[in-house]
Amino acid sequence: MFPPVFPAEPHLTATHYTIVVADIVAFGDRSRNNANQVRTRRGLYQALVDAFGAVGVPWHECRVEDRGDGVLILVPANVAKALFIDWLPGALADALRAHNRSHPPEEEIRLRLALHAGEIYQDEFGVTGSSINRTFRILNDDTVKARFAESAGVLAIIGSMWFYDEVIWNSDLSRARSYVRVEVDNKETKTCAWVRIVG
């Protein structure tokens, strides 16, 4: 068996995106069987598509990569970042509540959603970049998870330090003062994130 032959490496260039990463809380819990997980995943995607459409973010222009219990969404830079903190939290929380009302407990969704932005590289396998890594680190930080676990909310919005300073704090509609600063220490990443519990 011969190893795969790859074309010569092209010149690497990066493209700026808003980075959205969503993760279903307790997706692998033993109370969910495979069929429950499929219906939960469908509910997640339906909620995201509905909420993006409701606030004017063009889903069909985004790059979407499935993560099993969540999803990585790269939004083109020409889409206003303020949409993700002014209007998306309410629209997404409404969509999640609608899903939960029509499904049994083992198919209900509580969602962590992290927001960041940065330069992304794309190759024949997918996308990569330190900004993607950082978004996943703040999403999966134990302190962030614990703060959400202590609440009854349906949605946690987690802004990176950059996203808070540049977007959330500077928007009149973002409810910036409802975000709580959380220190993040996850793998190689030490930073802070800003968390708002919705719904």
Rank of each mutant, 00 (worst) to 15 (best):
D29S: 13
P58Q: 14
V127E: 04
G56W: 04
F6T: 08
A77Q: 13
V184L: 01
R67L: 10
L115T: 00
R97H: 13
E65I: 06
L139H: 03
V79G: 14
N100L: 08
L115Y: 01
R67D: 09
F136A: 07
A176W: 00
W194P: 03
W162Y: 11
D66I: 00
E61C: 07
H99S: 14
I109Q: 03
V184N: 01
F125N: 07
N34K: 08
C62N: 06
L173F: 06
I197F: 00
K187H: 13
E166M: 12
T191E: 12
Q46Y: 01
L115M: 05
W169Q: 15
S160V: 08
P4Y: 04
N100H: 09
H116L: 06
R32Y: 04
R30H: 07
F6N: 07
F52Q: 01
P105C: 10
D86E: 15
D94S: 12
R101T: 13
I24K: 03
A51L: 10
T191Q: 06
V75R: 04
L113S: 10
D86G: 06
A51D: 08
H16K: 14
D86F: 00
D94I: 02
G90D: 11
E107T: 04
R39T: 10
Q46A: 14
N33D: 15
D86C: 09
P4D: 02
D29E: 10
L74G: 04
V75Y: 01
L139W: 03
Y164C: 07
P105Y: 02
G153S: 14
H99F: 12
T40L: 07
G70K: 09
V180H: 05
A152W: 03
G70I: 06
N140V: 05
L96A: 12
F84M: 13
E183M: 10
R67T: 02
A54M: 10
V55Y: 10
S102R: 08
A8K: 15
P3N: 04
G70R: 09
R30A: 15
R30C: 08
D66Q: 08
V20P: 00
R42L: 06
W169F: 05
P58E: 12
P10H: 02
A95E: 08
V195F: 11
A95H: 05
E106V: 01
R196C: 09
R175E: 13
K187A: 08
R181S: 10
D185T: 06
Y45G: 03
T143F: 03
L83G: 07
A8T: 14
T189G: 02
Q37N: 11
A14Y: 04
L88N: 09
I120P: 07
W194K: 04
G118K: 01
R181I: 06
P58T: 09
H16P: 04
G129E: 07
R137V: 05
K187F: 12
K187L: 11
H116I: 03
G159A: 15
G68R: 09
A54Y: 04
Q46P: 03
N133F: 03
R30Q: 08
H11R: 15
L88Q: 11
L111E: 08
W194Y: 15
V55G: 11
A82R: 15
P3T: 01
V127C: 10
S178N: 14
S174Y: 00
V180D: 06
N140T: 13
A54H: 07
F125T: 05
S160I: 07
D123K: 02
E124T: 12
G70M: 08
I197Y: 00
A80M: 06
T13N: 07
E124K: 12
A98W: 10
D142G: 09
G28Q: 06
R110Y: 03
